[in-house]
Amino acid sequence: MSTQRAESKKYAYFEEHSSAEVVNARMGNDTNQRLREVMTSLVNHLHQAIKEVEPTHEEWRQGIQFLTDVGHMCTDWRQEFILLSDILGVSMLVDSINNRRPTGATENTILGPFYVPDAPRYSNGTNICLDGKGEPLVVSGRVVNTSGEPIPGATIDVWQSNDDGFYDVQQKGVQPDWNLRGVFTTDEDGKYWYRSAKPHSYPIPDDGPVGKLLGALGRHPNRAAHVHYIVTAPGYSPIVTHIFTPDCPYLDEDAVFGVKDSLIANFQKVDDERSADSLEFSCPFWSLNWDFVLASQR
């Protein structure tokens, strides 16, 4: 008799103390090995949690109803299950596991739902703030490898919300298309720079079951102010990350746990009329110098 068949016989009938083993023993001989590994772990942890919490029938029904409501909230443009994953820190954990890098390389964080491919390509120095809102910001820096050597020709795809806390795709017909989005290329010294507006905090969608859960947990839906980046170069692992302002009140309580200490930047306020005039800014304005460090592709 095979080991698996023996296990199935051993755990043929349900017992509270061996509930997970009974369920896992029902998997067939031809079950995909990775699926078997995932489901065994999931069943083990789920049954352990149930035994630890000991929910009533009514509490279990409420849990099922919550997941049903999450499913009903999903549409072609809104994924409430991803939002649930985000506010439980699971999205960040999966991202961290899949993007482990050597010390010194820029850390990853989640992509977020508002990325749009094929943004306009601009020459360095272009102002991507098309609605004129917010405090002016100039961003400059380099893209280098872990040895500190410049990477010419690296691509920097940037996007952010406007001063009202909305992305252009959330306000079609209100914001200009491609507002606060653009793609830049580093020069022969690995340098890049562009003009924009200081990012603003904003709430994630909280009008559904995930928002109700946040409220029940005494948590707010706000994301810390940030700028999104995707940085790529041939031969290097791509970076999907945020850069955060150090003065945001939600920095240490970001709703989706996207903040990492290494990604908090130094935004400096500049009160210099001559510099402002050269950038076609009002005075004062903000300046950010940030280097991206890429690790060689494994």
Rank of each mutant, 00 (worst) to 15 (best):
T245S: 11
R223L: 15
H200F: 09
A224N: 07
G235K: 06
P205Q: 12
P234Q: 04
V183M: 05
H242D: 12
P205C: 10
R195T: 11
Y202I: 03
P205A: 14
C248H: 03
T232R: 01
A233T: 03
L217F: 13
G182D: 04
Y192H: 00
Y229K: 01
F184V: 04
H200A: 14
T186C: 03
D207A: 14
C248S: 13
G190N: 01
S201D: 10
K191E: 14
V227S: 14
H226Q: 09
W193H: 15
P238E: 04
H242A: 09
V231C: 00
Y192P: 01
C248T: 06
K212E: 15
K191W: 08
H228T: 04
K191F: 11
D187P: 07
E188H: 08
A224C: 13
I230E: 00
T241K: 00
G182T: 06
P234I: 03
P203R: 05
T241V: 01
S237W: 06
T186F: 00
P246H: 13
P203K: 02
H242V: 04
K191L: 12
A233I: 00
G218Q: 04
T185V: 08
H242T: 07
K212M: 13
G218E: 09
A233L: 00
P234F: 02
A216S: 15
Y192I: 04
D189S: 14
H228D: 06
Y202V: 03
R223P: 07
H242E: 11
L214V: 06
T186Y: 02
D207E: 12
L217C: 13
D189T: 12
S196K: 01
G211H: 08
A233Q: 00
S237V: 06
V231H: 00
Y202H: 15
R195Y: 11
I239F: 01
R223W: 13
D207H: 14
G190F: 02
D187L: 07
N222Y: 15
G211V: 05
P238I: 01
G190M: 01
G208C: 12
T232C: 02
L217I: 05
H242Y: 07
I230D: 00
S237N: 12
K212N: 15
G182K: 02
W193P: 09
D189I: 05
F244G: 02
T245P: 05
P203E: 02
D206P: 09
D187V: 05
F244P: 04
P238N: 06
Y202K: 06
